[in-house]
Amino acid sequence: MPRPRVTLAAVLVATLLLTAGGVVVLAAAEVWRAGTFVLSVRDEGPNGARVAVVVPGIVATLAAVAIPFMLPDEAAARIRPAAPAMRALASELAGLPDAVYVAVEAPGERVLIASRGGVLVIEVDDGPDHVRLAIPLHAARRVLRSVAFAAQRTR
């Protein structure tokens, strides 16, 4: 076999291996990128309680697939007018940089909506009640798109 053909064949094999490796890396990255949902509710009152829920973000990806089959017709009809805006928001979510988007502070009260490391963070402090919600942006994007699709479908 002439040398150029051998070189080309070797490069083709290397390219195939790189692509296959890339796909595996992307799949792993997808699981990592999906991150985790965190919901924490804390009540510091006399009968205070604390609840924290941590769910792998990949669950949201799977849920996004199921939403079009599970969303009741009545809910779909209610959401339908907002579906185009949800779809537009979903498109923009992925590109959101880390930033504070809304912050309201008053004595004993605080609301924060921010993005940190690809995670949308919502924090609400109202007196003794504290709520923290962390949603990976990629997962939120998938869910938004799926809900918008489900709302606009016709049965």
Binding site: P84, A85, Y101, V102, V104
Partner: peptide, 20 residues
């Protein structure tokens, strides 16, 4: 109280036409 709102204009421009 204090209020801080920071939004990318691109985001507003993309979503506004879709609000009905």
């Amino acid at each position: 109280e204090s209020v801080r709102v920071n939004l990318p204009l691109d985001l507003i421009a993309s979503i506004l036409p879709e609000i009905d």
